[in-house]
Design a protein around this nucleic acid. Structure first.
Length: 507
RNA sequence: GCGCCUGUAGCUCAGGGGAUAGAGCGACGGCCUUCUAAGCCGUUGGUCGGAGGUUCGAAUCCUCCCAGGCGCACCA
């Protein structure tokens, strides 16, 4: 929020005796900013809301940033901003440049975001892609907010699934069919033709796919390695034996049920995945992360409370553990639906999806929707490289601005109106850009990136409208409009970057 | 049966207490000798699943009901 707005809010808050949050009304007839504070405070003050609103409006009229103030409806105060507000706000953005809206978080934390973490038993699917798109965008938002962020991939290289996978490859190598509960598909046959360890090959392939998807991992954690540290942690847990197995009494610490840590002898006596979870959680926290975020698909939501429970059991502050759940993804093409399951032939792999729609559209469509929504992506629309596709609409605004700036050569850009009143399209655009820090902060705190791309569409709307109505170069307002272009370009580039989409100079 | 998520325009979805509920796609109609028409402008289209409740004010918060998705392993 611009400093000028903060000043306004502070002074109005003092007058009203309650915190004022200026909001942007949807109807332009209601001014540039509005506040409902009179409605909220009136019951306690003994005055009528209209009367209070009148007092606030009268006081606001005298403020330098305010051109005009009105009372409307049951007691809203509507404000129209003075030219000086637009100059100051744009000036702030230009001064901040690419850093506009960053670094607001206090205190800065060390945060680990663990994401994707798919078993290395097959290529990544679109379901894992949503995990990555959300996790990576949240990581980017956290870093933008000022936190120190590390991305980690945790892979299971020692459980029953991996053994089944290896057995399937070995079977084909021996000229047999994979076992009934094994893995099939083209990629299994391909791995069987190579000599290398299929798990290692899969991991390499997964990393390459993720790099292509623009997710870079700082570290990779192995389940087998963490399991070796179990003897260190098991005695610290609240456990009991039942039916020959060792159980964690997690239900006493907020989990829905108790979980088996060590299988009974009849089941092989090996540690479960849950046991490795314990070692991993301690490992994360002991490595010094203030916060550890797990990104899990809805099919794992049953274990959501487990992580907090073991933190509590081991005496750590459970607030340091966060579990982000996202719902499933369906793809449609020509009205038909593809279901994703790694063991069947009709899966949609992330690489195929990127081939089909491009990396930009893939990232866009997977970050575009709230994590709580089960989403359906129309592959045909996502693949369309045209005006129908919002991702290109936004990129086009960026490229258009790049074109103007190229044509401008080194012409001066600033935030000075030189006594001119800003045009409606200029007002709209500056106000829109002023929303950006709030949008980024809200997306970060909600751990949901979807607000960013949706906001970027609004910025592109406002820019295209401004562009259509006003000339930038060789106009009387050239320097101001070039400044506006620069600020817009930088906000669009940042929005796209936060969801892992490129901002092209030309299209 | 229990738990989590969801139900908003024909379709896919924004919307996390405010004024007349928005966008994209779809459908229909205008605008290119001017910095990129991947653009702009307009029309069409909604009992916000239902019923109660809280509030000056509810798509938004609470309760119940209905419908759908996902879980409820000594798989992960």
């Amino acid at each position: 929020m611009p400093e000028a707005t903060r000043r306004l809010e502070a002074r109005l808050s003092e007058l009203a005796g309650a915190p004022v949050e200026l909001e942007r009304p949807s109807d332009p007839a209601h001014g540039d900013y509005a506040t409902n504070v009179a409605l909220q405070v009136a019951p306690a003050s003994g005055k009528g809301p209209r009367e209070l609103a009148e007092e606030l409006a009268a006081a606001a009229t005298g403020m330098a940033e305010v051109e005009r103030a009105e009372v409307a409806g049951p007691g809203f105060v509507n404000l129209w901003l003075a030219p000086s507000w637009f100059e100051e706000a744009l000036g702030e953005m230009l001064e901040a440049g690419a850093d506009y809206g960053c670094g607001w978080a206090v205190p800065h934390e060390r945060v680990q975001v663990e994401m994707v973490s798919a078993n290395p038993t097959g290529p990544l699917t679109v379901a894992s892609a949503r995990n990555g798109a959300i996790g990576d965008s949240v990581a980017r938002l956290l870093a933008f907010a000022g936190h120190q962020v590390e991305r980690e991939y945790y892979y299971n290289d020692s459980g029953a699934q991996v053994e089944r996978f290896r057995a399937s490859v070995d079977a084909i190598r021996g000229g047999e069919e994979p076992p009934e509960d094994g893995y099939r598909g083209e990629y299994v046959a391909e791995l069987a033709r190579e000599e290398s360890d299929p798990v290692a090959t899969m991991l390499k392939q997964i990393e390459a796919t993720l790099e292509r998807f623009r997710i870079h991992f700082d570290s990779w954690a192995l389940q087998s390695e963490l399991e070796t540290r179990l003897p260190e942690f098991l005695p610290k847990l609240d456990t009991y034996e039942k039916d020959g197995a060792l159980w964690a009494r997690s239900s006493a610490y907020g989990d829905d049920e108790d979980r088996v840590l060590i299988r009974s002898p009849e089941q092989g006596g090996a540690p479960t995945y849950r046991a490795a979870d314990v070692a991993y959680l301690v490992d994360k926290l002991e490595r010094g992360f203030d916060r550890a975020i797990y990104v899990l698909g809805a099919d794992h939501h049953g274990t959501r409370k487990w992580y907090g429970a073991i933190a509590r059991m081991l005496g750590y502050d459970p607030e340091r553990i966060e579990v982000l759940i996202y719902q499933l993804v369906h793809l449609t093409s020509g009205g038909r639906q593809a279901k994703m399951s790694k063991r069947r032939g009709d899966v949609v792999f992330l690489d195929d999806f990127m081939d089909e729609v491009g990396v930009d559209a893939a990232r866009w469509y997977l970050a575009n929707r709230g994590p709580d929504q089960t989403i359906e992506i129309d592959v045909d629309l996502a693949a369309e490289r045209s005006e129908k596709n919002p991702v290109y609409y936004v990129q086009y605004a960026h490229a258009r601005i790049a074109g103007i700036l190229r044509n401008a050569g080194g012409a001066a850009s600033n935030s000075l109106l030189q006594g001119r009143a800003p045009e409606p399209e200029e007002r709209g655009l500056v106000k829109r850009l002023a929303e950006f820090p709030g949008i980024a902060a809200e997306a970060t705190e909600r751990r949901g990136p979807q607000g960013v791309p949706n906001y970027a569409i609004r910025v592109a709307d406002d820019f295209h409208r401004f562009y259509h109505h006003h000339r930038v170069l060789e106009s009387d307002a050239q320097a101001f409009r070039l400044g506006l272009c620069r600020a817009t370009q930088s906000v669009i580039a940042r929005c796209l970057d936060l969801v892992g989409v490129d901002a092209p100079e030309r299209m």
